[in-house]
């Protein structure tokens, strides 16, 4: 047991740095993919065919590309096009771009749960497309969106570990360092799993709170 605890306490700074970067990546990509995903979702339900086409094409391409490949494009291919990110920025962009495709689909399915009459009534009042979406449709869609949204966010939090393969020192990179220190891998991995549990628990609690708060009588 002491050995198990020592793995953490002896390398507190490494765990701190690793999980710190994981949280930073998660927060930056979280905000980024929500903004981009909602925008793409709006494209997919817009009255303008070109925007709908763009949204659908984005989802079909990005969602079907393995995340490691998206990372590789940003880290190795982008510099060839004279776009230079540092590794951390590249990782944040990769996660944002990739996760936005999933958020887009969550938004679209949420919008589909709102009765068409709600949008019709809003349009009949003279609200613009953006107003219809922001004032009437999305607030009602949010309730149906919360559970899949949280699943996507949890998946994204765990996907941050892919960044370890692209020179970002986050939680997923800890085992490699620890191996060099000769620490037992089993304990290291257990601590990392616990770390992710600790990070994910607030998300699960947030989901419960949101679901209760957004309950709308129909």
């Amino acid at each position: 047991m002491t050995e198990f605890l020592n793995v953490l306490t002896d390398h507190w700074s490494l765990f701190g740095q690793g999980f710190g970067n994981t949280v930073k990546l998660f927060l930056i990509a979280g905000v980024g993919c929500l903004v981009l995903g909602v925008l793409l979702g709006a494209f997919r339900v817009s009255p303008i065919p070109a925007l709908r086409w763009f949204g659908a094409t984005y989802v079909n391409i990005v969602r079907n590309t393995p995340l490691t490949l998206v990372f590789a494009f940003l880290v190795f291919a982008a510099p060839k096009l004279d776009v230079n990110f540092d590794y951390f920025t590249a990782a944040a962009v990769a996660l944002t771009v990739y996760t936005a495709a999933f958020i887009c689909e969550v938004v679209r399915s949420g919008v589909n749960t709102v009765a068409p009459g709600q949008a019709e009534a809003a349009r009949a009042l003279g609200l613009s497309f953006g107003q219809v979406l922001l004032e009437v449709v999305l607030p009602q869609a949010l309730r149906a969106m919360v559970p899949p949204l949280m699943s996507v966010m949890i998946a994204m939090l765990k996907n941050t570990t892919v960044a370890a393969g692209f020179s970002v020192v986050e939680a997923g990179a800890i085992p490699a360092y620890m191996a060099e220190f000769g620490e037992p891998q089993f304990y290291v991995l257990l601590w990392i799993a616990i770390g992710f549990l600790v990070l994910i628990t607030p998300l699960v609690l947030l989901q419960r709170v949101l679901e209760r708060k957004l309950a709308v009588a129909r």
């Binding site: 009765a115 009459g117 709600q118 019709e120 009534a121 809003a122 349009r123 009949a124 009042l125 003279g126 609200l127 613009s128 009437v136 607030p139 009602q140 709308v216 009588a217 129909r218």
Partner: peptide
Amino acid sequence: LARLRSEVGMVFQSFNLFAH
């Protein structure tokens, strides 16, 4: 079109009041 719609009121069979 939005401006025109704002000048024409519409009442639906299923009311369509904003539920939230």
